[in-house]
Nucleic acid binder design. Structure first.
Ligand SMILES: [Mn+2]
Ligand SMILES: [Mn+2]
Ligand SMILES: [Zn+2]
Ligand SMILES: [Zn+2]
Lengths: 154, 154
DNA sequence: GCCACTAATGCGACAAGTTGCAGCAGAGAT
DNA sequence: ATCTCTGCTGCAACTTGTCGCATTAGTGGC
């Protein structure tokens, strides 16, 4: 079991993934629009976590005319394509992960607010148990465990 | 390991808990207001899960002048007192549990939308591992595991 | 019953999304 | 280049909360 330090996920984004987005959309009969180009450009230079609101903000830097609903709808599409994945922070707010980052969940202390990444190996037992006994397939990226860290328990 | 069926948590609410709320507030120098009486009355006849918005709605049935921020702030106080606990649904929306219901988390299939309760025994391994190795104390009521159920995996 | 202390309410503004709908515009066909 | 089909955008309204601030009103003490 290993927990990486306070929320600093790295992992170089594969440029080929971004080049293929247009084709992946076309293959499904979907379109490659200016608004989508902006969001994909933003995602291409994003590592680790981003909230939906942050992505909207970053898109606005490139195109001030950016409309939130368009960004959120495009994120839904990209999630379908398996290019991003979202979870929810301890407050329920959206948190996006840009793939092919290693998929992980989060551990959050509600007392001090610290966050740690929860790797696949940390939850192996739970994932296997749910699968074996109920056929349930866990989406690790959507897992946020809230509680209290050692320091805050005194 | 046992999963109760689709989201129908029962568990009789202990009336003594409700009678004691007033005193528990006073002990902390907090006040027993008409607005709080309404929310506590609503909670007293609530079983299983409720979203924050639903609670606001039910309070409005008793007192149409109910203000959302007051309800949410009172819920925070009651959570401090250990009378309710909240988690977040798969969409991040708040979900309240009225104690002394058995504390549990949730399992949610993002394909068909079904929800199952996740009992303490289901996550024993994870809880113990995080505690032993990192001193992290999991708040089970705040755990929502998202993924795909057996039926939806085909 | 009246005072003083301060917790709690009401209200308005704001944040983060979501949804329906009319009109716009990609993409392939001709 | 133009046409057509339909996916996508922009917009506006709405949902679910959150926050700061002036005002109100519980409470305990007198
Ligand atoms: Mn929460
Ligand atoms: Mn979600
Ligand atoms: Zn902590
Ligand atoms: Zn399902």
């Amino acid at each position: 079991m290993s927990l990486s330090g306070p929320s600093v996920s790295a992992g170089p984004a594969d440029p080929l993934v971004w080049d293929s987005v247009r084709d992946r959309l076309h293959d499904r009969g979907l379109r490659w629009t200016p608004q989508r180009r902006v969001l994909v450009a933003v995602l291409a230079e994003t590592r680790g976590h981003v909230t939906g609101a942050e992505l909207v903000e970053r898109c606005r830097e490139r195109d001030p005319a950016t409309i939130p609903s368009t960004v959120y709808r495009t994120l839904d599409v990209l999630e379908d394509l398996g290019i991003v994945r979202h979870g929810h922070g301890p407050d329920g707010r959206e948190e996006y992960h840009v793939l092919p980052d290693a998929i992980h969940g989060h551990l959050h202390c509600k007392a001090c607010g610290s966050t740690w990444e929860l790797e696949a190996t940390d939850v192996t037992a739970l994932v296997r148990a749910l699968d074996d006994e109920h056929g349930f397939e866990v989406d690790l990226s959507h897992v946020t465990i809230v509680g209290r860290c050692r320091r805050c328990r005194d």
